[in-house]
């Protein structure tokens, strides 16, 4: 059982206070939506959870059976999907998937890649370089690279950004699938998306 606990988290940029004294605790199977208007700090909070932005105050604890995980292990167990996360444009989708699997210490076969490509509606496009992909196709690929990690903590910022209707349905199915299997955190403004989560943290 994994547990992700946040205590008194605060972030400000100069005089601008984004959020103050945020605390919550999530365990495997829990899901939470972070909501709020543009500029309220949803993406910043996601980046703090990923340790790419340092908070002004507060503590985070990611543990397994009440034992705090090492930072490198936390990184391996956390997956992230976001519109501002970029992959390697000169490489093909398959090369990107194989690369991120390999540096995460995961073995993945060509057959498994094809299954995942099919799952997100990218079948037949695995050998194309990402420079030929649309923003919606790139967003779908991000879900594959996140899913291969079999994450214990999944953070999704704007889950359906850049996606068409069929893409949105695919993403909702993925979220439904993930819910219950890992700790799921969604940062969104879309009502349909935050309804997918078990609870809501409003930054409004």
């Amino acid at each position: 059982m994994y547990k992700f606990e946040v205590t008194n988290l605060s972030k400000r940029y100069g005089r601008l206070k984004l959020f103050d004294n945020i605390s919550f605790s999530l365990s495997t199977g829990d899901s939470m939506a972070i909501t709020g208007p543009n500029g309220s700090g949803k993406s910043t909070m996601a980046k703090i959870f990923l340790k790419t932005v340092i908070p002004n105050k507060g503590k985070m604890n990611f543990s397994h059976n009440d034992k705090e995980l090492d930072t490198d292990v936390q990184r391996i167990l956390t997956a992230f999907v976001s519109p501002y996360l970029n992959y390697y444009a000169p490489l093909t989708a398959e090369e990107n998937i194989l690369f991120f699997a390999s540096i995460s210490g995961i073995n993945i076969t060509g057959k498994e890649i094809n299954v995942l490509l099919e799952k997100v509606g990218l079948e037949g496009r695995g050998m194309d370089t990402l420079s030929t992909y649309s923003s919606g196709m790139l967003q779908r690929l991000k879900y594959i690279i996140a899913l291969i990690k079999k994450p214990a903590l999944m953070i999704i910022d704007e889950p359906t950004a850049n996606l068409d209707e069929s893409g949105k349905i695919i993403v909702r199915n993925i979220i439904e699938e993930l819910r219950g299997k890992c700790i799921l955190i969604i940062a969104t403004n879309e009502k349909e998306e935050y309804n997918l989560a078990g609870r809501e943290l409003s930054l409004a």
């Binding site: 996360l85 992959y87 995460s104």
Partner: peptide, 12 residues
């Protein structure tokens, strides 16, 4: 190219 973040999130 903004790929450093992806690299940071996947490995040591």
């Amino acid at each position: 190219s903004g790929t450093a973040m992806a690299l940071r999130l996947h490995t040591e």
